[in-house]
Design a protein around this nucleic acid. Structure first.
Lengths: 237, 237
DNA sequence: TTTTTAAACTTGTAAATACAAGTTAGAAAT
DNA sequence: ATTTCTAACTTGTATTTACAAGTTTAAAAA
């Protein structure tokens, strides 16, 4: 059985990841030692270490020789992601997500601001627009293009309060492996000013990004307009 | 001998890294197979794979099962770094670096926009300001604070055309392991407008970042003002 | 000639083992 | 009681061996 044909190191990775995220091991505490993990899961040390390396890589733990594996606070965003208030932290209750454009399947825009492969072009893309609102103030407007490649029931899913990336990971086993991004500070035009509720000409942070995933020819393309009047974009890498 | 007491996988990593950067293996070509590397360097496969994993991690190669290790274009910046023109690429000849403030040792500013450890505070910091100029137009103004911790002859070194990070890596074995950053779009004030040669009120990209390194209690703190009128900041991650 | 098949590559996963190096706690000595 | 040091942890590096799985090439069959 062994649920699925995932390699053993990956199964252990997923188990530990789940435990860290759910709070079984709290921040700053030590994971069981490598030898303990070997004994509990009936694996050898290289296999256990392989799983731990992946956790280090993804920012879930921090290893110290002679000490152990220290659990870190989980969210560790990729590149740039989370929104943080300039002075105080945002409690989750005040963060809303508004879907300006429900996911719909369309042909890729032409021209497109990133180069895409023939395979991506052939299958069309899922298009969606979202607006994140903090304390009633719109701050984050993102336009997303995702290849329509083997994503059953995608357009009918609920995106309101779930992260797009978390949904791709949990439902379709799609993980972000890296990416490239371009950043500018622009003056808001009429349209962007209206969406973000700022004056025309006010500065907005503009991001174009391409995220590549563990699936070949599956890249996520986003354009982001960020109202940094009262907030900043915060990222760990 | 074996030059230094670096572990073998790290020595192989450094060798291959150097060869990729110097063009011995060109972009898109294949590295020697793992077994070939074993034979040539008299190592076993797990050791060779350890070195290759590090190269994958740092973006120098891309591995494909059954195929081999594909060499990628080297510069792979950490987080956000390189400047790219919005339309055309910048040839290196047109990029100048001006030192506005030569490295000098000062006490840490108080308050400081990032939290620093007691050890960092006790040893003071090296302070420097630079301005990058592309085609005669100033685009990138960065203010840096580095802990004055075991950096012999640092303030007397030449920074004109060498990357700060490359110098720390080659001269002091200090490598960037990660970091956190905060981004905003701001209106340029009088001072920033003058430095970047733009009008007061024009949008500038503002970045505060803390980079942590392989040395404990050694973090690099930077504040960046970026003129994105004609250029964008480009980053791989 | 074209297609199919098999062999010879490649990297991926995994076990069993050994010692080096950093950390910690408790026993021994002061 | 305090200090010192050893022993028992921890993770780090490295070897050896084996087979699985993906890719390519060339031989064999159609």
């Amino acid at each position: 059985m062994d649920e699925g044909k995932l390699p053993q190191y990956k199964k252990l990775y997923e188990t530990l990841r789940k435990h860290i995220l759910s709070g079984v091991y709290e921040e700053g505490s030590l994971l069981p030692s490598e030898n303990e993990l070997c004994a509990v899961h009936n694996l050898t040390r290289p296999t256990v270490r392989h799983a731990l390396e992946a956790l280090v890589q993804d920012g879930f733990i921090l290893k110290k020789q002679g000490k152990g594996s220290i659990v870190r606070k989980p969210p560790q965003d990729i590149g740039i992601l989370s929104i943080s208030g300039t002075s105080s932290a945002i409690s989750k209750d005040y963060l809303q997500t508004q879907i300006l454009q429900k996911p719909q399947i369309i042909p890729w825009p032409d021209p497109f601001h990133f180069e895409i492969s023939d395979i991506e072009r052939d299958c069309g893309c899922v298009y969606m627009e979202r607006l994140r609102i903090v304390n009633g103030q719109p701050v984050f407007y993102d336009i997303n293009h995702i290849p329509n490649l083997n994503l059953p029931r995608f357009t009918s899913r609920n995106f309101e309060n779930k992260s797009l990336f978390e949904l791709l990971r949990s439902q379709y086993q799609i993980e972000i492996k890296g990416g490239q991004q371009k950043l500018k500070a622009l003056k808001a035009d009429q349209k962007i000013g209206k969406i973000l509720n700022i004056k025309k000409g006010d500065p907005v942070l503009y991001i174009e990004r391409k995220l590549h995933t563990n699936r070949e020819n599956f890249n996520i393309y986003s354009t982001i307009y960020f109202n940094s009047e009262k907030h900043a974009i915060f990222g760990n890498f």
